[in-house]
């Protein structure tokens, strides 16, 4: 199965989703991310969903799970790049992504993590 790459940038991990997401890939990402956080001691995770044309309840739930999981492993998560149409649809679907930090793009997401002390250990 195709797995999503997780890049390490300084003290942060970057996951940039560039393909049509299958459910099994999302589940695998969750496991890979937990492993990589522990392995690298990363303090922040940026998940870039710029290329995603939809986020349904399954993907939304997995984003929330990954944020919670990172939190437990002492890393902050920011979801960046959500398209306006995706945001409108998510809210109408009934998914507010409570507890997930968001930013408009990768750069702002990284800045948000740095301000939160994500880069200094």
């Amino acid at each position: 199965m195709e797995r999503l790459p997780i890049l390490k940038i300084g003290q942060m991990l970057l996951v940039s989703i560039q393909v049509d997401l299958r459910d099994d890939m999302v589940v695998a990402l969750q496991e890979d991310l937990a492993d990589r956080i522990v392995e690298t001691g990363a303090r922040g995770v940026v998940i870039d969903i710029t290329a995603l044309d939809i986020v349904d309840s399954f993907t939304g739930r997995m984003l929330a799970t990954m944020a919670a999981l990172s939190r437990v492993l002492d890393a902050d998560t920011v979801v960046v790049g959500m398209r306006p149409a995706v945001a409108i649809t998510l809210v109408e679907l009934g998914l507010s992504l409570d507890g997930i930090k968001t930013a408009l793009d990768v750069e702002r997401g990284m800045r948000l993590l740095s301000l939160a002390g994500g880069t200094a250990r």
Partner: peptide, 29 residues
Amino acid sequence: QAVRAAAVEAKLSLVDQTKLVTAASELAR
């Protein structure tokens, strides 16, 4: 992908395309 292609062809707006494709994703699952 098939629903998205049909929605583009029927000239649905981007938001309506996104809503329909999201609904299709839920229902297919």
